Simulated scan of single mutants.
Amino acid sequence: MGASELSALLWQERELLDLLEYRLEVQRALLTVGESRWAQRAADDIEATTQQLRNLNIARDVEVQAVADDWKFNVVNPSLRELIAAAPPDGPWLEIFNGHLRAMLASVERISARRAENGRMLREAIRHTQETLAGSGDRAGTYTAAGTPDTGKRTAILFEDDA
């Protein structure tokens, strides 16, 4: 094991980050067009990719330690950034690992922004659903403009099923 194996793992991690970004984009698209029936599948896909990343991170941490040991960098559990700082200046690894780190940081930034946006959209969809359901039956628990309990029945509401 060595720097080449670590670079291969970092490529795998970058590919998984791209896949996660794609799956978040799919989730956003589904939320945008209101295809709530696929929301759970999209969430499951995102979770599966996240779990793959967690598993790969364990292998990467082991490989980072192995490379640190090869380079006589006496730090236990160094980060990739720390390993880069300890890279031999006369070899290609400083530039290669820096490239991996920059690409992964950019991916993580885009993923974080997309997750936040999707979370906002999911909360909004839940709120809309709750408001629709709250207004779909008896009006018990609501009040009129005069402040008296409104016990009147609502007229029928039509729910459309797009399926």
Results as ranks from 00 to 15, higher is better:
residue 79 S to M: 05
residue 134 A to I: 01
residue 28 R to F: 07
residue 106 A to M: 04
residue 66 A to F: 05
residue 76 V to G: 03
residue 41 R to S: 13
residue 146 A to W: 05
residue 98 N to I: 00
residue 58 I to V: 14
residue 82 E to T: 00
residue 122 L to N: 03
residue 89 P to M: 08
residue 85 A to P: 04
residue 55 N to H: 13
residue 54 R to H: 02
residue 149 P to W: 04
residue 59 A to M: 10
residue 139 R to G: 06
residue 121 M to I: 09
residue 76 V to A: 14
residue 64 V to Y: 06
residue 142 T to R: 11
residue 51 Q to W: 03
residue 120 R to T: 12
residue 125 A to G: 03
residue 117 E to F: 08
residue 146 A to F: 07
residue 70 D to W: 11
residue 120 R to Y: 14
residue 128 H to A: 15
residue 78 P to I: 05
residue 93 W to E: 04
residue 119 G to K: 06
residue 92 P to E: 15
residue 121 M to H: 10
residue 136 S to R: 10
residue 95 E to H: 12
residue 73 F to V: 04
residue 28 R to Y: 11
residue 136 S to Y: 13
residue 127 R to H: 15
residue 88 P to Y: 02
residue 114 R to V: 07
residue 35 E to C: 06
residue 67 V to C: 04
residue 99 G to M: 00
residue 131 E to K: 11
residue 32 T to H: 10
residue 81 R to F: 02
residue 120 R to C: 06
residue 50 T to S: 11
residue 34 G to Q: 04
residue 128 H to M: 15
residue 147 G to A: 03
residue 132 T to I: 10
residue 107 S to A: 13
residue 38 W to R: 15
residue 138 D to G: 14
residue 69 D to G: 01
residue 88 P to N: 03
residue 132 T to A: 14
residue 97 F to I: 06
residue 144 T to A: 09
residue 63 E to D: 09
residue 109 E to D: 15
residue 106 A to V: 02
residue 137 G to C: 01
residue 141 G to V: 08
residue 86 A to V: 01
residue 112 S to Q: 10
residue 94 L to P: 01
residue 74 N to Q: 14
residue 31 L to V: 01
residue 64 V to W: 01
residue 72 K to A: 15
residue 126 I to F: 12
residue 98 N to F: 03
residue 122 L to D: 01
residue 114 R to C: 07
residue 133 L to V: 11
residue 117 E to N: 14
residue 77 N to E: 09
residue 107 S to M: 08
residue 85 A to Q: 08
residue 130 Q to T: 09
residue 55 N to W: 08
residue 145 A to C: 07
residue 76 V to D: 09
residue 33 V to G: 08
residue 59 A to E: 12
residue 101 L to F: 08
residue 146 A to I: 06
residue 147 G to E: 03
residue 55 N to K: 11
residue 53 L to R: 07
residue 82 E to R: 04
residue 44 D to Q: 12
residue 53 L to T: 00
residue 140 A to L: 13
residue 115 R to P: 04
residue 70 D to F: 12
residue 149 P to N: 00
residue 128 H to Q: 13
residue 116 A to K: 14
residue 125 A to E: 01
residue 119 G to F: 02
residue 90 D to K: 11
residue 36 S to Y: 10
residue 62 V to T: 15
residue 107 S to G: 05
residue 151 T to G: 10
residue 62 V to S: 10
residue 115 R to T: 03
residue 96 I to T: 11
residue 149 P to E: 05
residue 55 N to E: 14
residue 131 E to T: 13
residue 77 N to S: 13
residue 42 A to N: 06
residue 139 R to H: 11
residue 100 H to Q: 07
residue 104 M to P: 05
residue 119 G to C: 02
residue 107 S to E: 03
residue 113 A to C: 04
residue 77 N to I: 00
